[in-house]
């Protein structure tokens, strides 16, 4: 697909933000006062900033409130509900931490659960798409969740947890790439099933319906971004996982911590770019492409 920068930024930054909120909600770190304020401020900028970036992707952001209405059927609507509920509950919890040095732990745990719910619903928006076989896998929510909690641990200074979770996330990332490269063939959707002409012989796209580009080709059959996929995978893996892991093993200092966080963010942005750029929609088959 066409990788829209707003969507890539949203899913990466808000994932980290909600991951951080998860750790803050369960009281790790259990800071109070100014330190707590800084932690919550970072989390809200990331989570809220991501939400605002994604609203820019809409054709009619002014009607955005309607997106809260269909939570019974739509993952996008569930995500909107979860995200706002998280931000409200964690806001109240933050008031306790920052101003009263209090741990209103019921709110905190509820907020932590909602944070994970938000990341999960985000991942399900993609996972539900049977039309994009690469996304249609239980590994997708597993990767999103592990990355959010792992990245959140990195931001929250939970070094041991961050180490373990990043190792797990890197394994999931490799598994996700591995299954993704086979998913289209495994889906069973081909030009023969798309046209129903397979019983006659080999189907080849002879002439497209239009000579110019259209919405479908621009959005779903956008192949240009797939160039350099392997190089980008290596960069994503090195920056997103390997380097932060190495830095975490070094003796701790705030500068090293900051470098690890920045590396991780750039690496995950790259991996998210590939998540969208390499997505192959079955509609491409009607154009003889993928």
């Amino acid at each position: 697909m066409h990788p829209a920068p707003s969507i890539i930024a949203f899913s990466t930054l808000s994932g980290l933000g909600f991951g951080l909120l998860f750790w803050l909600g369960i009281g790790m770190p259990g800071s109070t006062g100014l330190v707590a304020f800084v932690f919550f401020a970072i989390a809200y900028v990331l989570a809220g900033g991501g939400l605002i970036a994604s609203a820019f992707h809409l054709g009619h952001p002014e009607r955005g409130l309607l997106a809260f209405t269909q939570w019974r059927s739509s993952w996008l609507s569930r995500e909107a509900v979860c995200a706002v509920a998280t931000l409200i509950i964690m806001g109240l919890y933050a008031v306790g931490r920052v101003f009263f040095a209090a741990d209103w732990f019921v709110l905190g745990w509820l907020g932590a659960a909602l944070s994970l719910g938000t990341v999960f619903t985000t991942s399900m928006i993609y996972t539900q798409m049977k039309t994009v076989p690469r996304w249609y896998s239980p590994l997708t929510p597993a990767l999103y969740l592990t990355l959010a909690i792992g990245g959140g641990a990195l931001l929250a200074g939970q070094v041991i947890w961050a180490l373990g979770l990043l190792v797990l996330a890197s394994a999931l990332q490799l598994a996700w790439w591995w299954q993704g490269d086979r998913a289209f063939a495994a889906s069973g959707t081909t030009m023969a099933t798309a046209t129903g002409l397979g019983h006659i012989g080999t189907v080849r796209a002879f002439e497209p319906p239009h000579t110019g580009p259209n919405y479908l080709l621009r959005e779903m059959v956008f192949v240009i971004a797939r160039k350099h996929a392997l190089k980008l995978r290596i960069i994503a893996f090195a920056l997103g996982y390997a380097l932060p892991l190495a830095l975490l093993l070094a003796p701790f200092s705030h500068w090293i911590g900051l470098t690890a966080v920045l590396c991780h963010i750039i690496g995950i942005l790259t991996s998210r770019w590939l998540f969208f750029a390499e997505a192959e929609h079955v509609v491409g088959l009607y154009y003889g492409k993928r």
Binding site: H60, Q128, N214, E219, M220
Partner: peptide, 20 residues
Amino acid sequence: DTCIGCGLCAWACPYGAREM
């Protein structure tokens, strides 16, 4: 009147039957 133009439905359709 209530479509926000998110494009998700076009992604869900395997046939390319929806265009923004």
